[in-house]
Amino acid sequence: MKYKVIVRVVLKPSVLDPQGAAIERALTAMGNKGIDSVRVGKIIEIVLEGPDEKTVFDKVNIWSDELLANPNMETYSLIVEPIA
């Protein structure tokens, strides 16, 4: 069975995000109102073979800790989707 795992990596709320702040200023400069905050992160899509969703999730979870995100400054979340 093939799965697509979407790994969403974002800076921890406590970490200043200068890119997000720059985008927020630009959006405001465009005349948009009411923006509370803008944060920039990464989406990493991995397509892989696996026996079931749980096994795939656990595997990519480990990869995320080891490489895809830096727990010092980032958090991540995973979405696992079977590919028909």
Partner: peptide
């Protein structure tokens, strides 16, 4: 960790 410089 070393992050993006404050003023990018």
């Amino acid at each position: 960790a070393l992050l993006r410089n404050r003023y990018l």
